[in-house]
Amino acid sequence: MSSMPEFEYKRPETLKELFDLLPGYESGAAILAGGTDLMPRIKRGLEKPGLVVDIKDIEGLSYVEDKGEKVKIGALTTIFDIRNNTLIKDKYPALHEAATLTASENIQLRGSIGGNILQNTRCLYYNKSEAWRDSFKPCLKNGGDICNAAKGGKRCFSVYRGDLAPALMSLGASVCIVSENGEKETALEDIFTGDGVTPFSLSRDELIKNVIIPSAKMKGGYGKFRMRKAVDYPSVNVAISMDTGGKGRLVVGSVGAKPFMYEFSSLEELKEIPERAYKDVSPINNMSLSPYYRKNMVRVLAEELIRRV
């Protein structure tokens, strides 16, 4: 048992109720969906919200809908439902495969697409209890001004290790962000700041309402390099989606604070991407496998996936 900081808990039933709640808490509110990312963070003292708002009872946030030009996926749609959705399986193989390979089946049943996208970045020196972190000075991500993983590092090297976001980015997805002031649609890649300290540009009073994917059927796939065949976050992940004209995107994840996205408009261009990605990424020693190896695996995994797709 690890003792959790105290907080209030609310379970609004409408978005309006939610937005009424958020500003009232000075120490911040945390939005709780499946909780598979948030709760361990709270338990380890990485997040100290004054209020936890459980949005699971908010009506109408769980769906996969074909809206003609676009397919919309409600933020509370579980990873499991995405994995089993025939429309997604048929149109967006990269997303289907990413959902299938996420964590374990029980986590898929609990975790939502919105929460999975907005999962925080991770680091071997960061996702630990307060007592463990006592052996170190506070790092950049934890209110300090140093990086414990890269000595002398001036920025945070924590890594975004989500499964779904790279697949969605490859599909050209955008997200509908809702706040008290209304809704706005933003390209998924634009919500990533690239800064490990605050990986997302969303403010505390905004949440993802749904994910929007262009409706055209895409060829593609998802490759996940992980040590075990379940539970694990990706060590490196790659998603590719392309339309019938051979135009599309390749996205590499788990090598930085945000996924690396590459557009291509022909097979020739696509084939050049693995080498480019390999040169672009510079992982450091802050997760299980050596950075040199992970860097190499970017190219290998991308090439393997291109061959397969």
Partner: peptide, 23 residues
Amino acid sequence: GSGECGACTVLVDGKPVNSCITL
């Protein structure tokens, strides 16, 4: 204690949850 092993699995409305990371 952090949803990594499933020893605390119970069902909520028929769905398995890791009760150590469920309020």
